[in-house]
C-alpha cells in the first residue's frame, strides 16, 4: 500500500512542480518590472509556505501514529511467535521458517559478521517489512502473515560480493492446511 501511495504522490507533486516551471518558462519572454512581481510573489509565497507546512504537518501526524517499531503493528500481538534470525555472509539462519496464515511473528534479528538488511517479501515479491541486521545489536521486526505461499527474505544492506545470494524462503501454510 505504502509503495503505491509513494508512487502516485510523487507523480502528483512532480506534475505540479512541472506545471509551475512550465508556466514561468512560458511567461519568461515577456518583460515586466520586477518590483510588482516581487510584491505579488512574496504574498503568494506566504500562502504557499503555509500550504506546504499544512501538507507536511498532516502527513507527519498521520504517518507517525503507526510506527513499525511496536508490536501493535502485528495483529494478535499476545500470541506472538518469537523467531531468532541471524544473518552472515551470505545466508540467513532462522530458528523457524514455516508458519500458518494468521501467525504473528516477532523476528529478533542480528548478524554474526557485518551489517545486513532483513527484508521480507510476500509471495508477490513485494516488501512487507524490513529491519537492519547488525552485529552486537538485536532489532525486532513484527509481521503477521496474511496469505499463504512462499515468502522470501532478501538482504537489503550491501554486505559484499555475495550480497545478492542472501535469499531464504519462508513457507506460510493456509489455516488448517498441510
Amino acid at each position: 500500500m505504502y509503495q503505491t501511495i509513494a508512487w502516485y504522490a510523487t507523480l502528483f507533486f512532480v506534475f505540479l512542480i512541472s506545471l509551475a516551471f512550465s508556466f514561468v518558462f512560458g511567461e519568461s519572454k515577456r518583460l515586466k518590472d520586477y518590483a510588482p512581481i516581487q510584491e505579488k510573489g512574496y504574498k503568494i509565497r506566504k500562502y504557499y509556505f503555509l500550504c506546504l507546512v499544512a501538507i507536511l504537518g498532516l502527513s507527519a501526524a498521520i504517518s507517525l501514529t503507526k510506527l513499525p517499531y511496536h508490536s501493535q503493528t502485528a495483529e494478535a500481538a499476545s500470541n506472538l511467535k518469537i523467531v531468532n534470525v541471524t544473518g552472515q555472509q551470505f545466508s540467513w539462519n532462522l530458528s523457524q521458517d514455516t508458519f500458518t496464515v494468521g501467525d504473528s511473528v516477532e523476528f529478533r534479528v542480528t548478524s554474526k559478521d557485518v551489517t545486513h538488511g532483513f527484508g521480507i517479501y510476500d509471495p508477490n515479491m513485494k516488501i512487507i517489512g524490513q529491519v537492519q541486521a547488525m552485529p552486537e545489536y538485536t532489532n525486532t521486526e513484527y509481521v503477521t502473515f496474511k496469505k499463504a505461499g512462499t515468502y522470501k527474505i532478501l538482504c537489503l544492506e550491501y554486505c559484499s560480493t555475495g550480497h545478492h545470494l542472501m535469499v531464504k524462503d519462508i513457507i506460510v501454510k493456509p489455516k488448517g492446511g498441510k
Binding site: 505504502y2 510506527l67 517489512g129 537489503l156 544492506e157
Partner: peptide, 18 residues
C-alpha cells in the same frame, strides 16, 4: 519529493534500500 516521502518511517519500512 520522493526523498521526503522516503523519509517517512512507515514508507521507509517498505522502501528503504530499494
Amino acid at each position: 519529493v520522493p526523498a521526503i516521502i522516503d523519509a517517512t518511517i512507515v514508507v521507509n519500512h517498505v522502501m528503504h534500500n530499494t
